[in-house]
Simulated scan of single mutants.
Amino acid sequence: MSNVIRVRAGLLRETHPGERRVALTPDDVRRLSARMSIHFERSCGIGAGHADDAYIAAGAEPAEFAGMASSLDVFVSVRRPAATRIFPGTAVLIFLGSNAAPVAGLPAGQRPLHLDIARLSGVQGVKGADISSRQAAITGHAAILEAARQFGISHPMLMVDGSFVRPVKMAALGSDAASLQALATARRLGALTHGFGLGRDTQAKIERLGAKFLAMSSDLARLRQELSDPLSKMQLITTNVVIPGQTAPMLLDETMLSRLSPGTVIVDLAAESGGNCALMRVDETINVFGVRIIGSATLASHEAAEASRQFSDGLRNLLEHLIDADCALRLDPRDSMTAALMNEETALRRVSP
């Protein structure tokens, strides 16, 4: 059984503090305009360098949120819309989240359908649909550039009086796209890189980037003991060990932090999931024991223009897959992409226009 929705879409302005990305660029709005009617919130693309006039020229119509929420069917955004934004139960929200369940408090038939793009990670078959890995890679790249700013190093390969500046020792805890990109960027900037991960597949990925592989234990208490000595020799550490739907495990406790060299910079990429580092504060940079801990949840926004272009390209490909020749959004749970987007509850739900 297919769920069919005539497509009238709304491009939302991001409300999370510091978020500058936009879900669709004017170029992709233009390419989608033959299949769907698109309305946009004014100033939604300013942070990524896209003026309202560019969206209008691409065929989109400006609108206020209240009017959009009452008249449109599909809403797209980078982040999951804030709970304070009220949508009708027939609406479909497409965003990049963290595989979280829909907001509780309303019966299934009275709350919007949440299609979390994060669920597509690793799914094959649609060009550009794995948006989350693209955004993670940009986050890992931005993390290293932010750490370099914290160090006050404009270029780690700088030569002074004929000698290279001593290279920074960098470690990445995790083997996801963000951690691997962090290793790649740090190495390009001249750092001596070390990757902590599990299994032979992880080892191969890390060593292909020119980093030294260090195995991580699956036992958390043992892992902390194993990390204590090698991390004490590092000057830059990124962490991104997360478990979908759960609070991120604490990898660096206060005792371990106190043993790090003063001046060490930690970028906790798991900040939004609770963080891998003790004392971390989301969207803040703090200094404890002479160690700076960056808990930014908006690192991808440091590269807002490119991050938005990548997000928009993937989202356009996804929408082109879901929208048929009759300009209808078909949510058919027999389709592998749709099944990945929808959880068990929503897969059985029929949505009316």
Rank of each mutant, 00 (worst) to 15 (best):
S2P: 15
A9W: 07
G10F: 05
R13T: 12
H16Q: 12
P17H: 01
P17K: 06
R30L: 13
A34S: 14
R35I: 11
R35L: 15
A57D: 12
A57H: 07
A57Q: 11
G67A: 10
A83G: 13
T84L: 08
P88N: 09
G89S: 07
A101C: 10
P102K: 05
V103T: 14
A108E: 15
G109D: 15
I117E: 04
S121G: 12
G122I: 00
G128C: 11
Q135P: 03
E146D: 07
A148I: 07
F151K: 04
S154N: 01
P156K: 09
P167W: 01
P167L: 04
A171M: 09
D176K: 06
D176Y: 05
A177E: 07
Q181P: 09
L183Q: 08
T185G: 02
L189T: 07
L189F: 09
H194G: 12
F196V: 13
D201T: 13
Q203K: 13
M216K: 13
L220W: 04
L220H: 06
R224F: 04
S228A: 14
S232L: 06
M234D: 09
I243Q: 12
L251V: 10
E254M: 08
E254Y: 00
S258Y: 01
R259N: 12
V267K: 07
D268M: 02
A270E: 09
S273Q: 15
V288G: 04
I294R: 00
G295L: 00
L299Q: 00
A307R: 01
S308L: 04
S312E: 10
E320Q: 14
H321V: 08
D326G: 13
L331N: 02
D335S: 10
S336M: 05
M337V: 15
A339R: 11
A339W: 01
L341F: 03
L348T: 13
